[in-house]
Amino acid sequence: MARNFGFAPIKGRVIDFDRNDKRVFEYVLEREPSFALCIGCGGCAATCSAANFTEFSLRKLNILIRRGENDEVRKIVDRCMLCGKCTLVCPRGVNTRNVVFLTREAFEEFDNYAI
């Protein structure tokens, strides 16, 4: 499709916020309202068991979901071991484990419609 006359932003460089699919965000937020409370302090990412071994930041995941950057979310969301340490340090009381759980669930739910 010749949208934007060849000036389409290069994927991965710019967050195309208006076109991004925010269904995952809506799905998670509706079921886990505490998702909205994140202030991006990074406490979760610092304590994360998985982050000891691989690139995984729950804080980043959280923002990626909000921006609808689902491809990147999909790449990392399965790396979480659900150990729950992040939930124990979050100063805002975000139920981070459930956020991961619901994100995976959302992908399963929407996969039929290809995000």
Partner: peptide, 23 residues
Amino acid sequence: KDGSVCCGRPLTLAGKDREAREL
């Protein structure tokens, strides 16, 4: 001492046995 690989029980409790098996 430098951080654990999770034992797998939290995944089991979430119903994700197959993933837990890897841990």
